[in-house]
Design a protein around this nucleic acid. Structure first.
Length: 271
DNA sequence: TTCAGCCTGTCG
DNA sequence: CGACAGGCTGAA
């Protein structure tokens, strides 16, 4: 579910309520999930009585930084982090755990349980980011982005989705970006012309910023840090629209699997 | 570089 | 009932 714009939206929402808050209680509902993630129940409980003093996002991951430790989330396809001023657990069968702060309750839920969490010491956070993720798609400079493309090999879409090369784009935004840049998803990354590289960079920044401004894309399950849906799905041009006419030239949009991900594109506009 | 597997839900 | 879904990993 959540790609860069969605996780950024969640981060901004949670920051409003959790910055400086003190964790008072930890309520663990799904112990099995923690075990799978190699986290002892006690480790999580030990976060109690510490202050959350920063939230940091890189790519699709979000870190809650406490005094000594950082709790890192990857929301997978259906993970959600929802803040509520007062409890509301009753109808939530996918709740993994809740963190009870003095300012309200943060619940982590995940329907498909593809999400992941890590609990590391605060000093290791920089190393963690570097070991797991390439530069953030919003932060990367044009120069570094162009180098990445020049040194790429294989389909451009595969490169855009590779989190170790470039962190943040998922299937929605990679698909939309390639349409906006008029580049075919199977083009070899290293074959892009200098102009195409610049266009791709410019369109990537614009796309992500527009999506953040509209609070992300809610196709199915995504909700922001307060449980509300995003609006950017209304601006999608090709994602999930196979067979429908291209918004530019009316040619029916085509669909191919690429690395197991459904990929929609216009065979006429995207070269 | 495919492809099943991890899970649950929805749609046709 | 099968196909597919904002992700990622590890095995063939």
């Amino acid at each position: 579910m959540p790609e860069l714009p969605e996780v950024e939206t969640i981060k901004r929402d949670l920051k409003n309520y959790l910055l400086g808050a003190i964790l008072k209680e930890v309520l663990i509902v799904n112990k099995n999930f923690l075990t799978k993630n190699k986290i002892e129940l006690e480790e999580l409980q030990n976060l109690k009585n510490s202050r959350l003093f920063e939230l940091e996002r890189r790519g699709k991951m979000l870190a809650l930084i406490f005094e000594k430790r950082a709790l890192i989330f990857h929301l997978g396809l259906t993970g959600a982090l929802i803040f509520q001023p007062s409890p509301l657990f009753a109808d939530n069968k996918h709740l993994i755990f809740s963190l009870l702060f003095d300012s309200g309750i943060l619940s982590f839920q995940d329907i498909r349980k593809f999400g992941k969490i890590w609990l590391i010491s605060k000093e290791n956070l920089t190393n963690f980011w570097q070991a797991n993720l390439g530069p953030d798609a919003l932060e990367i400079t044009e120069e570094d982005f162009i180098t990445l493309l020049k040194e790429g090999h294989g389909p451009i879409k595969a490169l855009l989705l590779n989190q170790k090369k470039l962190a943040g784009l998922g299937n929605i935004y990679a698909t939309e970006l390639l349409f906006r840049a008029k580049i075919h998803p199977l083009r070899k990354a290293e074959s892009l012309t200098p102009e195409e590289r610049r266009t791709l960079y410019r369109e990537m920044k614009a796309l992500l910023q527009e999506a953040i401004a509209l609070r992300g894309s809610s196709i199915r399950d995504y909700v922001d840090g307060l449980g509300q849906k995003g609006l950017f799905q209304e601006r999608h041009l090709v994602y999930g629209k196979k067979g429908r006419p291209c918004p530019l030239c009316q040619t029916p949009l085509e669909y191919i699997p690429l690395q197991g991900r459904g990929t929609t594109f216009c065979p006429q506009c995207q070269k």
